[in-house]
Design a protein around this nucleic acid. Structure first.
Length: 882
DNA sequence: GGCTCATATCGCGGA
DNA sequence: GATATGAGCC
């Protein structure tokens, strides 16, 4: 099964394994979606705001009091009741600090919530508290999070606390989703129409590239990507083209940075589009330029809550300040920010830890509440984490503690391995052992510093037949076929979306190449009309040669028809029609490559996921805003993800591989951020440590391949910052070679023992590998079996790899210790003596070469006459019977 | 003029 | 390891 998955989803093979393909299905609840087109198409006036929708309308739910009306006595009575011994159920079980954070509803509040101290619980209970006291309607609470996942979880948990009535919390969401909602209401004030599209980074880069070329600049010398990053940085600070520092402006495009930025914004406006940064920057500008608009929001939001406040960037901060500022010296705004300065790990993305450190200055009279009682981890883990983070300066200072102390608790384990492959192997073994003891795979996670580390674990787990899920890999919506389909939908929903149009005019191939597209483009620019319109015009003129003209006419006619169908066809049906009639599905059906069926599957899944939305537009909006795709929670699988995406999660057992200088702390952070960069890395380590509830394993290796180059590495300085008392250095024992059991004491010699010395121990561990159940499973599972040629190991580990690795499949491309595919021929000696399961004449399929007939068999090496690729010699485990 | 294949170069973080 | 460019072919 995993092998099939790999074949199907070549883009990021494994993600398919655990149902990455089902992105929008979680829980049974329909995703809450606001309907933007109908109610806000032309609404500029605040009076168009829908009145507060009654919220507790279920029978038996407490009735809200009318907004603005004096508090009826019932509320006071209930509030009193809440303080009584018979406190509401939802307050029970909170500790004193948590309860204070929940009950201090008025005035500015900063909750410093350490890892595992019940932060989400406080936030959700606080909202439930406000609601049940009748202090505000759900629609009067603004609650912002950073991820959709956090928002979803909050909705769900509030729902559990107050009954099922949370559908009515329209202003609970991510910064971006709330920003988009505001912007749709006031789009005209930003020079947009309310049906604007949101461009993702890919679109942005293509657009910038066009602009750079239009300026007559060399896009080699001035990479669009880099400029996109600069714009991002500026927008994180809330800077428009006029506001950027002169130095920044001069640094790009021969000093034309500012002009280019301006041109970019202008182009977005004509495209009726905005990028991610604009979702916050436009509202900020609107609030400043139109105090009446801002005032309306002030009236509306009685309570503001912010999650992960330490991650806010300057733009988000400005946005919040504007919304939370005191109006005319009247009552203090009720803003509650929750965060942990020790978990600020997004500095490189523009986050300002300063925001949280400055809170008391920004909001005078603020109540600061510290949550330090940890409910998650053992004393050993907490001790290790606290000791590590204490090496940072400039913290607000918190010390986590726990009452739970079990003498049986395991200390934090530090392991050494020879190289990353052995690391993966050993982690795999450990996981299997835990599994045998009855631990669920769902309770285990591998948290890596950089995503390239994931691959080795994936490879290993595939071999072992262990289920795993990758979080934060390339996402469903980033796949080529999905983006193509989405581009079709976008053009139908928003005919001015030139970027989408350009993407698909010639997909599938219609004979409209570069020249034709350029002509459409030029016509569009000259007449100041969208490209789709220009295409229709060109199709009726004699400007083009007959062939492209006919093709273009067909395209234009198609889109016209689909647009007409938009109103009277269900959007899922229309989506199917579009993909069918455009020839897009046929394109993949006729594609004989191995990934084509997977892509068709994905397209089907795309349509299926659209069912959860009420309209094509709301679906498009959802897709533009999802950053995290859901996972199939039902499957028992080990989680592999980056430390960044692990924040907020917890696992019984956590593996932290790759604790080596240069990787962790990451060289880049050190180079760019100096001391503060190092501190951010340390916080990242802290985040990693505090994800673990019971077991924590840290790994470092002495050799790692980075950018195709084997490099000797030295253990991370963070290892030395762990307290002896809570740490145990795992003895190498029978396996894991590397430092020969010396643990990280081996760091005295940065190059470790001679690599030749450890070959022996390494091979010992190799033979152990055969004994693992996973290996045996892999043996049974013939297709999984990787060839295991260790023969050429010595002396190879510092050379450059990277020749002939045309196949990303098994065994290939994994460094000198593995076999390599050269010109399609597998140069490997077999270790398996078992007879080949194939016989001469068998019809077989190979991932790369397609179908063919077995011509000869020699051990486990087959000679196959492929239909297309000709005669090749391959290892039998690389082909499947047809 | 458009399409397909093969080679050279860059770069990698993340919602 | 993906992307951009160029050669060769239809």
């Amino acid at each position: 099964m995993p092998r099939k998955a790999r074949a199907a989803g070549r883009i990021r093979p494994i993600s398919t394994v655990v149902g990455k393909v089902r992105p929008v299905k979680m829980g049974t609840k329909r995703q809450h979606c606001w309907r933007f087109p109908a109610e806000s198409l032309h609404s500029v006036e605040m009076s168009d705001f829908p009145d507060d929708i009654p919220f507790f309308d279920e029978p038996g739910a407490p009735a809200p009091r009318p907004s603005g009306a004096p508090a009826p006595s019932g509320i006071a009575a209930r509030a009193m009741a809440a303080r009584n011994a018979s406190a509401p159920d939802y307050l029970k079980g909170l500790n004193a600090e948590q309860r204070q954070a929940v009950e201090t509803t008025e005035g500015p509040v900063l909750v410093l919530a350490g890892a595992g101290t019940g932060k989400t619980r406080v936030l959700t209970t606080r909202i439930a508290h406000i609601l049940s006291l009748g202090r505000a309607y759900p629609s009067q609470i603004l609650a912002v999070t950073f991820t959709n996942k956090a928002a979803r979880e909050m909705k769900q948990r509030i729902g559990l606390l107050v009954g099922e009535a949370i559908e009515g919390m329209p202003w609970l969401g991510t910064f971006h989703s709330i920003g988009v909602k505001m912007l749709r209401r006031h789009a005209e004030l930003a020079g947009l129409r309310s049906d604007f599209t949101i461009l993702d980074t890919d679109d942005v880069i293509r657009l910038i590239k066009q602009l750079i070329q239009a300026e007559g600049l060399d896009d080699k010398r001035w990479p669009p990507r880099q400029f996109a990053m600069m714009i991002d940085t500026w927008k994180n600070k809330g800077l428009g083209p006029a506001d950027i520092p002169e130095g920044d402006a001069r640094a790009f495009a021969n000093g034309k940075g500012r002009e280019l930025y301006k041109a970019y914004q202008d182009r977005l406006q004509t495209l009726n589009a905005c990028d991610f940064g604009d979702l916050l920057c436009h509202p900020i500008r609107i609030f400043r330029a139109h105090p009446d608009v801002l005032k309306e929001y002030h009236r509306r939001f009685k309570y503001i809550l912010v999650d992960e406040y330490q991650d806010t960037n300057t733009a988000q901060y400005m946005w919040l300040r504007l919304l939370a500022q005191e109006t005319g010296g009247s009552a203090q705004k009720n803003i509650c920010c929750v965060g942990d300065d020790d978990q600020s790990i997004y500095g490189w993305r523009g986050a300002e830890v300063d925001n949280i450190l400055r809170f008391e200055k920004d909001f005078p009279g603020a109540t600061v509440i510290r949550l330090e009682r940890n409910y998650r981890s053992t004393a050993h883990i907490l001790g290790a984490a606290s000791h590590l983070i204490a090496h940072n300066e400039g913290r607000l200072g918190k010390t986590l503690f726990t009452d739970i102390a079990d003498p049986d608790d395991a200390k934090v384990n530090v392991h050494a391995a020879w190289d990353s492959e052995e690391e993966a192997r050993a982690v795999g073994e450990e996981i299997e052992q835990l599994q045998r003891k009855g631990h669920a795979l769902n309770d285990m996670a591998i948290l890596v510093r950089a995503s390239f580390q994931m691959r080795e674990f994936e490879d290993r787990f595939v071999t072992l037949g262990l289920n795993y899920r990758v979080v934060g890999g390339p996402r469903f919506y980033e796949r080529q076929e999905i983006r193509d389909a989405m581009a079709y939908f976008r053009v139908v929903a928003q005919p001015a979306d030139d970027l989408a149009f350009e993407r698909i005019v010639n997909v599938p191939k219609r004979g409209l190449g570069e020249a034709a597209v350029r002509q459409i483009h030029d016509t569009a620019r000259a007449l100041r009309i969208p490209m789709l319109e220009a295409a229709a015009k060109l199709a009726e003129s004699d400007e083009l040669k007959p062939k492209p003209r006919a093709a273009l006419r067909a395209v234009a006619a198609n889109f016209e028809r689909w647009q007409k169908a938009l109103d009277n066809t269900s959007h899922t049906e229309l989506a199917e029609i579009i993909l069918e009639e455009s020839g897009y599905t046929d394109m993949w059906k006729n594609d004989r490559s191995a990934e084509a069926p997977g892509r068709l599957e994905n397209l089907k899944e795309l349509i299926r996921s659209m069912e959860d939305y009420e309209s094509l537009r709301s679906f498009l909006e959802h897709v533009a805003l999802v950053m995290d795709s859901e996972q199939n929670e039902e499957l028992d699988a080990v989680t592999i993800m980056t430390l960044h995406s692990a924040k907020g999660l917890e696992f019984e057992t956590v593996f932290l591989p790759g604790w080596e200088e240069g990787l962790f702390p990451h060289q880049r952070s050190l180079d760019e951020g100096g001391r503060s960069g190092l501190e951010e890395e340390r916080r990242l380590a802290y985040v990693g440590l505090t994800r673990a509830k019971k077991n924590l394993h840290i790994w470092f290796v002495s050799n790692r391949r980075i950018h195709g180059l084997w490099q000797s590495t030295i253990p991370s300085r963070f290892l030395d910052e762990l307290p002896e008392a809570h740490v145990e250095v795992a003895e190498g024992g029978d396996s894991y070679g590397g430092y020969g059991g010396g643990g990280y004491g081996g760091r005295q010699n940065p190059y470790g023992a001679s690599r030749f010395d450890s070959i022996g121990s390494d091979q010992r561990s190799f033979s152990n590998t055969y004994a693992t159940p996973g290996w045996q499973r892999a043996q049974q599972n013939r297709n999984e079996a990787t060839d295991r040629n260790w023969g050429s190991r010595s002396g190879h580990h510092v050379e450059r790899i990277g020749y002939g690795e045309t196949d990303s499949g098994y065994g290939a491309g994994r460094g000198s210790v593995k076999s390599r595919t050269i010109e399609g021929e597998l140069v490997a000696k077999s270790v398996a003596d078992s007879p080949s399961p194939f016989k001469v004449g068998d019809r077989v399929f190979h991932q790369k070469f397609g179908n063919g007939n077995v011509a000869a068999i020699e051990g486990n090496k087959l000679t196959i006459d492929f239909d297309k690729a000709g005669q090749k010699r391959v290892i039998d485990s690389f082909v499947t019977a047809v």
